[in-house]
Design a protein around this nucleic acid. Sequence first.
RNA 1: GACCCGUUCGUCUAUCGGUUAGGACUCCAGGUUUUCAUCCUGGCAAGAAGGGUUCGACUCCCUUACGGGUCGCCA
Length: 455
Amino acid sequence: MSVRTRFAPSPTGYLHVGGARTALFNWLFARKHKGTFILRVEDTDAARNTEEARQAIFDGMSWLGLDWDEGPESSVNRSAAEMDGQDTSHSSVKLHPPSKPSDSYYQSQRKPIYDAYFEKLLAADRLYKDGDAYRFRFDRKPITMNDLVCGEVIIDYRDESNTPDMVIRRSDGSYVFHFVNVVDDLEMKITHVIRGEDHLMNTPKHLQLIEALGAQPPQYAHIPLILNADGSKMSKRDAGAAVGDYPKQGFLSEAVVNFIALLGWSSKSDDEIFTLTDLIDRFSLEAINRAPARFDLEKCKWVNQQHIAKISTERFADLAKPFVQAENLPITENYPTVIAAVKEKVRLLSEVPAAIDFLITDTAAQDDETVAKAKGNPNSAFLPALAEHMAALTDWSADIAKEAIATIAQANGAKPGQLMFPVRVALSGRAHGPDLGDIFSILGKEKTVERLRCF
RNA sequence: GACCCGUUCGUCUAUCGGUUAGGACUCCAGGUUUUCAUCCUGGCAAGAAGGGUUCGACUCCCUUACGGGUCGCCA
């Protein structure tokens, strides 16, 4: 039997990292077993079901590179290998109304299917009216589930006060989550349900429904939740909660995927930096932990830096461009050279503008403290001499400029290295930045001399 | 409150009865880089507590504590 997994989010206006990880694990499991990954939108709560809310799900999935084989407008089946080198910035998913309810992956459009299953339960005498609503009569016995992550868990349904019969159809005729969720999983022939641990206690309810319908249940795997750094529950407003915020903050999608995969799952090796393809290769449900994991933004940034180091300079330049433009910095013709000089200095794409501004404008902000420190440095006294020496040079290159530093240092009985710091600060206004040679060649002779003179 | 799941460095984790309890992030120190960063080396830092079982327990069992989840005509 081939594997079929699904991710079934409800539109809430954003894609939560916890949801993203659930989607990722379902996707990885399906891809690993050459199965089918399905996206189903559980939009039965009309109040929250808006176009934007649905779009947030698609955008998040697309950005992460998680394509679905079945679902709203099945996304083009791009291979994971292809994704690795690709800009995955927001491709929007278009919606086409399905011809039949069974073709739809929106619960709001599948009512006739639910009606049919409802009749089955009615015929089996498992439903009774409560006002205008219908309740499902639980079988009063212990229910055992064999969870792929949690192991055997038994919930005793003999105690009616703890497990009251549940409403599956509301007074207004609409169906509740438990019922439609189960029906859809059955209809879509889902083999493995991988979902958050918040659903663990729902599972016996679902097993009861499935049994009453005379069907075979899928296998379940409940994954632990993701918590804030302080251990509290992660909600919408918390930093790092919304997947849509990551691209804005300068994260690479592959880094985010890599990082959330590491939350609650381990490759059982010392390796930590993985592409989507690597993850498919190594993923297994058995390696998922049972304890909730806390979200460490610092490590997430480190993972991002590792991925930035791996991508090509061209792709890095493309990805950084929006951030540079957002700061109203010009994209000059030497942009590729400028960007290459800082590729391995930043952890986030959003750090790029502040890392390169002094190279492309003359009005970049300076770090006053560092400037003061450099001015107090005795070696700053040699800067005017260095400026005049450089001004007299006929050729200009990183090496020639460095040689000039050595010459002036030697003439004054100092070491070249001692001049480097004041020179760096005079040129950049900061203590950290690109290689001095890069700065020299990007700035050119005129600007270098000018900034040395003005210091 | 009841019912479930969980508990190894601050954080993410390895360990499937016998290890000096390993790796990663962070932080600190040294080295490389005539500068910055990268990088390399080293360091700080952990089995919640108490009982069992066992020749031997982080690992199995029980209790307590703590954390999380669930108890809707939300999903």
